[in-house]
Write a protein that binds this DNA or RNA. Structure first.
Length: 232
DNA sequence: TTCCGGTCCT
DNA sequence: AGGACCGGAA
């Protein structure tokens, strides 16, 4: 029994069409970003932590340099705090760097000496226990690194889902409901889930933006409760 | 000058 | 529930 009653989000009628339109658009409009070219859990993790409060253009600049200095979990774990802080300098929110460093130390130190390489958990429930990893990043790592069919809801995703499926009624909708909705929409196949999660975030970043959404160019407008009645 | 954002802490 | 953390963009 759930402790709280989160209003049950069932799969909307237009779910299938939404996914089709979204993925077709993503196939032709997606930006080619470095972290979309890897499934290495460590690299995915670093990109997601950097992207937490920092724009894509800035992360694109720091991400390769950081990975050059710390190419894997082990090298990050054994680095001095000052070196990590320096590699992070300019990104802001330095608690993220400290958490990431602590995470590396804890994960790398977990395995038996000499045996298997340190490995990040695959399960979001385990990932959220690590420092600096909340519900969003846990879902993102599970999906983008391990191709698990789980949702990853950041503010982009939250905004898109609200506008498309809830319309004006969605203003006061709680987090739990949005996550349930996302769970109902994510394809069960991991590779499709990967593309779906990337695509819905890309839509939120490029088209369904917080201010001045570009409804006239939106691929899912035919199924959107908000955009359908807006003028171009 | 105001707004924006995941996670952590209060 | 509400603010702190930072730096860029509106």
């Amino acid at each position: 029994m759930p402790r709280k009653s989160i209003p049950q989000a069932r799969k909307p009628r237009s779910a299938q069409r939404f996914r089709r339109l979204l993925l077709a658009w993503y196939a032709r409009a997606a930006r080619d970003l470095p972290w979309r070219r890897t499934r290495d859990p460590y690299r995915v993790l670093v990109s997601e932590v950097m992207l937490q409060q920092t724009q894509v253009s800035r992360v694109a600049e720091y991400y390769p340099r950081f990975l050059e200095k710390f190419p894997d979990l082990r090298s990050l774990a054994s680095a001095p705090a000052r070196a990590v802080r320096e590699a992070w300098d300019g990104l802001g929110y330095y608690a993220r760097a400290r958490s990431l460093h602590a995470l590396a130390r804890s994960v790398a130190g977990r395995g038996e000496a000499g045996r298997g390489v340190a490995k990040l958990p695959e399960d979001p429930q385990e990932l959220v226990k690590l420092p600096g990893i909340g519900p969003y990043t846990a879902g993102a790592v599970a999906s983008f690194a391990y191709e698990k069919p789980v949702p990853a809801v950041d503010t982009n995703v939250r905004r898109v889902l609200r506008r498309v499926f809830l319309g004006d009624a969605g203003r006061g909708t709680g987090d739990g409901y949005i996550w349930e909705l996302a769970r109902a929409l994510v394809p069960k196949d991991g590779k499709r889930a990967w593309r779906f999660n990337q695509a819905i975030m890309e839509l939120g970043a490029l088209i369904c933006r917080a201010r001045r959404p570009q409804c006239s160019q939106c691929p899912v407008r035919p199924v959107c409760r908000t955009g359908k009645r807006l003028d171009a």
